[in-house]
Write a protein that binds this DNA or RNA. Structure first.
Lengths: 205, 205
DNA sequence: CACCTCCCTAAGCGCTTGCTCACCTCGGGG
DNA sequence: CCCCGAGGTGAGCAAGCGCTTAGGGAGGTG
């Protein structure tokens, strides 16, 4: 729990302070029990407030989920776009993308769990907006894989399918990663970067 | 929805008929909205019964989830053990395991979603039982990978980590697979069997 | 015919839920 | 000194929840 303190860095631009405390409390609760099993009383309690205080900063419980989902997806998309636009070979860029993306999912696995697995609880409009961010993430990775295939560094018969699989592999880290487990986020990132290169048929060592 | 009719085959040994109809209705509802967002009234309604009828066949809503989870996990474990014990090289066996496991996750993605993502809603005792089945699944796949490394067919620096990643990749199919999408369960199984061989460092073609 | 068992329903109980409302507190400006 | 808006509280409402209970009808057996 001490390590979770860094979490607040993610939410730096959520103001005022009480609104940020509520977001952090909601992430913890949603990740632990899921959106629908979490009560507004639980969220407010974790943030040290009365149940009514939540509604000063957010119109509904769903808006809280949307805020979390929106911030999380934009962070994830930023990670992938930065890797796509970085210098280096396609292998370097794919490796960097997977390493950072996985590290984020492991380090912030509570946030990532909410971001990746609670989409279904969003309202229709919010859901549509988030889905478009997810398509952008997919496109960023697909560009790297396409570059690798074009340059001959990668060899895979199904670029969209392999891209989907690589992203899927990374996302699922949020499901199984345990802070008390033996692997650190850095170790998992390293392992997964290697696995992703194998998946796209990267020949060189 | 017509294709979902085969689903009933999975639940052949759930009797009497009304109990089976309830299980099938619950799988649909849980997969669509999640366990906590599903009401017993919704389940009973889908099965064409009154809300009270559910409690003739199941003590609680959680018991319904447990039945689904138990049957699903045993089916999945059976698939993996059959592949582990089959004749052929480690590559053949891993390929078979992934192909069948993935095909099941795609074909029965509604069941698989409940099985893989609603564990957290189980009671403590039921959860412990299911977790032990999952450990057995992991062990089955790890055995194949170890065999391949021992025989020199596979080359991976981290056997437990790679095993976890292969299983994780397969499981996540339940999250993204869409029956209306362009890929058939067979195509995804084929692609993923190939990806898994690459992940474990299988050299030959 | 009576009688039992198995499924099933209508009605509803007790409780929790997301959310609201009247009111309170407190620092800062005129 | 009063007033004000921003941020907070305690109490509680309407609705929906999981689940129970009393009772009914169909089918087999004496």
């Amino acid at each position: 729990m001490g390590a979770e303190g860094q979490q607040s860095g993610q939410w730096a631009d959520v103001t005022p302070d009480a609104a940020r405390r509520l977001v952090i409390a909601a992430v913890e609760a949603f990740a632990e029990r899921g959106y629908h099993a979490t009560t507004t009383r639980d969220i407010a309690g974790r943030a040290g407030m009365s149940p009514a205080a939540l509604y000063i900063h957010y119109k509904t419980k769903e808006e809280l989920l949307y805020r979390i989902s929106s911030v999380g997806h934009r962070l994830a998309l930023g990670i992938l776009r930065r890797a796509r636009d970085s210098a280096g070979s396609p292998a370097d860029r794919l490796s960097e993308a997977v390493r950072c993306f996985v590290r984020w999912h492991a380090e912030h696995h509570t946030t990532a769990r909410v971001v990746q697995y609670e989409l279904g609880a969003l309202s229709e409009e919010h859901y549509a907006e988030i889905v478009s961010l997810r398509r952008d993430s997919d496109a960023a990775v697909r560009t790297i894989v396409e570059d690798g295939v074009a340059s001959g560094d990668f060899g895979t018969p199904d670029v969209p399918g392999t891209t989907l699989a690589v992203l899927s592999l990374c996302i699922d880290v949020a499901r199984w990663f345990n802070a008390e487990g033996k692997r650190t986020p850095d170790e998992v990132g390293e392992l997964y970067a290697d696995l992703a290169l194998r998946m796209v048929g990267y020949a060189k060592k």
